[in-house]
Design a protein around this nucleic acid. Structure first.
Lengths: 153, 153
DNA sequence: ACTGAAACATTGGTTTG
DNA sequence: CAAACCAATGTTTCAGT
């Protein structure tokens, strides 16, 4: 699907606040509410907009402790990859898991309440997965920037 | 603010789809629409819900290439830290930047169109920031899991 | 792009545990 | 007394034109 300038501006706005009304977007982008409405529906139908979600403040729900954990498998072979990925998907503490190039095979983002909870998570859940060679945990000291929005221009 | 079981279930639902109606949530959680409505407002007022956003499919808007870039400063002193963080905030390609423990000082998530665009980004933008000692880029081969939702129980 | 009907969010007054 | 409910109003969405 081809996006014009207005589609991109609309996507930037929706990625920052999806609860504004079509009327507001219409005023800001100098179009009618119906025009905006139809553009949004088109973006949804085309699969560009995949959904709408609420974002929460993790510090207020006892999930302040975030860790980026680098994982290397014993051997990077198909069976091990499949099993590791399947097991990781089950772990609720893991919000992101990327298969990456570089020194490690995977990088995971993990949210828990505190260091003790992380220790428990590592011992009883993560390293319980077979074929893990080594891990290296980077604790998050500070979130300098943390956005879900991809800037379009 | 104290959260009961229903608040947590409601937060789990809202984190996965915020466009459902209060009526739907009401049916699912066996409460009236007003009760759900009031709980949502309370979660918003308390700051637990920080906002609502649209999520997009990056592969459809020419931002398929994601890199996790590890950055080490020449020296981890206050002035360098402040300047680096200030400059990183300006870079639209950087969606996340975490100050971390471990071998590197920062881990950044970067969305660009392709490898060539990443090369341009590195040369003209990232390494143009002063005081960077070294960088190590991990290219994302596959997204095994990628969620914005923190599971509550 | 406009309009009107239907669905939804929202509020005040009321009830319940 | 706080949380849930009911009913009534104002907004937004959205199909048909």
């Amino acid at each position: 699907m081809k996006l014009d300038k207005i589609d991109k501006e609309l996507l930037n706005l929706l990625q920052n606040d999806s609860k504004r009304t079509t009327k507001e977007f219409a005023n800001e982008l100098k179009l009618s509410t119906t025009a905006i409405y139809e553009r949004i529906k088109r973006l949804e139908r085309s699969g560009i907009i995949t959904g709408y979600v609420a974002l929460i403040d993790r510090t207020k729900v006892d999930r302040s402790f975030t860790v980026l954990c680098h994982v290397k498998l014993i051997q990077h072979i198909k069976d091990f990859v499949i099993q590791f990925e399947r097991e990781v998907l089950k772990l609720k503490e893991v919000v992101e898991c990327f298969h990456t190039s570089g020194d490690y095979d995977y990088i995971l983002k993990i949210h828990v309440s505190d260091m003790q909870a992380y220790r428990d998570f590592m011992i009883t859940k993560l390293t319980a997965i077979r074929h893990i060679g080594s891990t290296q945990s980077s604790f998050i000291i500070n979130e300098v920037k943390n956005s879900t929005a991809v800037f379009l221009e």
